[in-house]
Structures are given as structure tokens and as C-alpha cells.
């Protein structure tokens, strides 16, 4: 914790809406999403496929095809609205102030250039370096990400590297210009667990070294618990809960968050005979329920849930939740909750 730098606001997403024009009319993939990222903070954005987490991330860099995409709201990066930047201004931000690591390291590197070439490209574009300097910087970055023999690897092509190595190259590329904000979109999903743990450690270390803000997009709640300080849970294009990582895991407020946590098979604790199941499936964006979007799958749903959409409400220190009944549910879970915390301390 770094005192006042911790409190400095880096990115603020305000009431962001992303509409796509499709053949079947307009689809709103992200609907009124707000959250913020401070320097040195890691914010996890979690949710299942189709919840809009990747679209949110891509909007921050405006990577979506703008012919078919309409934005509403603001994305303030150091108080500048990214959505209002011109193309050339945007290019100065991309890869320089904000950079991104993508899910699939196999397809996000250019197969016909050496990895060194691809790192040098970003450096030459954004930093005032000669080609020689950029090349030695590329080697330095590869070394930083823990690639053995960086002097040799820098001249290799992506196909010569393993998945974990490629992800390290992506990280080296993303961090080469010392970005203020790093967006990592499922950075470890395609990797094995032992490699995943190496990469997560690496992101954590580098985050501290550069005092970066990080947005970690993931569906894996284990990854969230490992690296994040704050968590934003999304469902069908909306934020349904926002809280610190401790509070999400010890006392989740939204029934969806609770369900998600209960349905993961764990590697510790008692082995329940049956897993908890959230009934039904995520509706498509063309058939959004009228009231609360989770109502059709929610065991606590009542009349009002099916009728009126709840707003994202603030509750106690920094918690936000979008649910009509979270207080009642909280009370009902009260006893259960306490015992869970106790058992956790015993386990550790």
C-alpha cells in the first residue's frame, strides 16, 4: 500500500452503454456500467460468457468496430474522455498509457515477425528511442518477464515458443512502454495451472514495480481471489455487484454472486455430494427480461423483481449491489455466513 498514490483515480467508467447494430436490430451488450480504477489497484471484472466483460474492456481502448458500435456515457482516463478522443490522440494512448493483454497468446501475435520485432514496434511508436535502444529494451523486457535466454528468444518467431512463453511475450509487449493502466482479458485462461500461477505472480510483481492500475477480466474466481483488490460482477451487460475482494468472498450480497461461489467445485473443504446449481441459462441479449435480469434464474425472485429493474445501490462502505431483496437475503444468510468465516480461519 502506497499511501496517497493509492487513492489517486486513474480510470473512471461512467454509465457506459455499448450498442451494436446487428441485422436483427440494436443489441445493448453493455448497459449502464460504472466503475473506477485507482493507481496500483487491481480490479477484477467477473462474469460468465456473454455478460459484457470483454466488450467493456475493449471499449476502454475503443477496439470495437465503430461502424457498428455506438457508445454512450464516459470513459475518463486521467480526466480525459477516451470516447471523445480523435484517432491520432487515441493512438497515443493505446499501447502507451493503456495496454492490453489478450486471452489467446496463440493468435494475438503476428506469426510472420519475430517477437523482438513486435516489441520494438511499440517502443519506436511511442518512445523517443533509436532502433538500437529499442532492441536492447526489448531484450530487457523479455528478461523481466522471466524468459530464459532473452537474447536468443528475441529473434524467434511466435511458433517457436510455448503458450506460456507467448503470454510472457505479450506481457513484455504490453509493459514495454510502462503503461499506467493494464487491461488483462482472461490472460491465463488458455494456460495450464502451473504456468497460470507463474503468469499471475508475474503480473502481480510488475504491477507493484510500475504502480499500474490493472483491470483483470476473468471468469475464474480463483484468479480473482489471488490477484484482485476490488471485484465487479457482471451479468447480462450490467454490473450487479461491486465490492472489495474480501467482502465478495465472505459475504456476497447478490444471489447470482452467491450462486457462482457455491457452484465451483473446490479443492479444499468438505466434498459435498451435490453441487449447487443456478437453474436455467443466461438469456440472450435479444431477450432481456423486463425486470431484474437475473430474476428468471433467481430463487428469491418475487413480483417486483420480474416487474421493475433494480438500480445499483450503494450499501455500507463501498459495497454496491443491484437487487431488490439483498437485505432480506443477507439476514437469512446471517448465521450461515458466520460459521463459514470461522471454518476458513481454521483451514488456513
Amino acid at each position: 500500500m502506497r499511501g496517497d498514490t493509492m487513492t489517486e483515480l486513474l480510470l473512471e467508467v461512467k454509465n457506459l452503454k455499448v450498442h451494436f447494430e446487428t441485422e436483427n436490430g440494436t443489441v445493448t451488450a453493455v448497459d449502464d456500467v460504472s466503475f473506477s480504477v485507482k493507481r496500483g489497484e487491481t480490479v477484477g471484472v467477473v462474469g460468465e460468457s456473454g455478460c459484457g466483460k470483454s466488450v467493456t474492456a475493449e471499449s476502454i481502448l475503443r477496439l470495437l468496430n465503430e461502424k457498428h458500435t455506438n457508445y454512450e456515457g464516459n470513459i475518463l482516463f486521467e480526466e480525459k474522455d477516451i470516447l471523445k478522443l480523435s484517432y491520432s490522440e487515441l493512438q497515443k494512448v493505446r499501447g502507451n498509457d493503456i495496454s492490453m493483454i489478450f486471452q489467446d497468446p496463440m493468435s494475438s501475435l503476428n506469426p510472420v515477425y519475430t517477437v523482438g520485432n513486435q516489441i520494438v514496434e511499440a517502443l519506436l511508436l511511442h518512445q523517443n528511442l533509436t532502433k538500437k535502444e529499442a532492441e536492447s529494451k526489448a531484450v530487457e523486457m523479455l528478461k523481466l518477464t522471466g524468459i530464459p535466454l532473452p537474447e536468443k528468444r528475441v529473434n524467434e518467431y511466435p511458433h517457436e515458443l510455448s503458450g506460456g512463453m507467448r503470454q510472457r511475450v505479450m506481457i513484455a509487449m504490453a509493459l514495454s512502454c510502462k503503461p499506467k493502466l493494464l487491461i488483462a482479458d482472461e490472460p491465463t485462461t488458455a494456460l495450464d495451472v502451473t504456468t497460470q500461477s507463474q503468469i499471475l505472480d508475474l503480473i502481480n510483481e510488475l504491477k507493484d514495480e510500475f504502480n499500474m492500475g490493472t483491470i483483470m477480466i476473468t471468469h475464474d474466481l480463483g484468479v480473482v481471489a489471488e490477484v484482485c483488490t476490488k471485484v465487479v460482477v457482471m451479468y447480462l451487460g450490467q454490473v450487479i455487484e461491486e465490492a472489495s475482494v474480501e467482502s465478495i468472498f465472505s459475504s456476497p450480497l447478490h444471489p447470482y454472486t452467491q450462486g457462482l461461489l457455491k457452484s465451483i467445485p473446490q479443492i479444499e473443504g468438505p466434498r459435498d455430494e451435490k453441487l449447487y446449481v443456478i437453474e436455467g441459462k443466461v438469456p440472450t441479449l435479444t431477450q432481456i427480461p423486463k425486470g431484474c435480469r437475473f430474476a428468471p434464474r433467481c430463487e428469491f425472485a418475487t413480483e417486483i423483481c420480474r416487474d421493475k429493474m433494480p438500480q445499483l445501490e450503494s450499501y455500507e462502505n463501498d459495497l454496491k449491489v443491484r437487487c431488490w431483496h439483498f437485505k432480506d437475503i443477507q439476514e437469512k444468510r446471517g448465521g450461515m455466513n458466520g460459521s463459514r468465516n470461522e471454518s476458513q480461519t481454521v483451514n488456513s
Partner: peptide, 24 residues
């Protein structure tokens, strides 16, 4: 042992000791 310790556990209250494997 290394494989088990590498799994991220969805529980921020548990700090486990990790066995780190080097290389691939």
C-alpha cells in the same frame, strides 16, 4: 504437490504456500 499448490483458490483469506516449478 506443485500442481495442487498452483491452483488459485477462490478464497482470499487463505494464504497458501506455493511450490513453484521452474521451466516448462
Amino acid at each position: 504437490k506443485a500442481l495442487l499448490s498452483a491452483i488459485p483458490v477462490p478464497n482470499p483469506f487463505v494464504k497458501r504456500e506455493k511450490i513453484k516449478l521452474i521451466g516448462e
